[in-house]
Amino acid sequence: MAILDADTSVGYELPQIARQFRLEHFKRADEKTIHTDTEAARREGLPAPVAVGPQVAALIFQQLRVCFERGWIEGGKCELTFRRPVFVTDFCVAKGTVTRREETADGVRLHCDVWIENQKGDKVIVGNASGIVPRRHG
């Protein structure tokens, strides 16, 4: 059952999805990459190995799937900006709020601000997303 529906108010806080990342989460076979190897990262100007962006953004996608269920799979939209690197041992938490309702032919599209904070409270990924919820009957 989706958490959001046509009765959801603007300002509603989306459920938070958190994950403690570890280096092992980003390893693929024996490849040395900027995600797994300190020297590979340093040569690209990075101070340390960085997390794979889509794996971090997946916290937001999980949040949106929980919130919209079917309305995320069919008609879900998202625009994210990776503002600063997430390091491979960072703690990350996806947060968000409902910002706007839009009547569409398919139902009500709820727009949200979404973001991911690291353990310092820095917003490392920011953006907006939307999904469809069924219109009320009667």
Binding site: G53, G75, K77, C78, L80, T81, F82, P85
Partner: peptide, 9 residues
């Protein structure tokens, strides 16, 4: 590095 990601399912 990945900077922006727009997607539509």
């Amino acid at each position: 590095l990945f900077y922006k990601w727009e997607l539509e399912n």
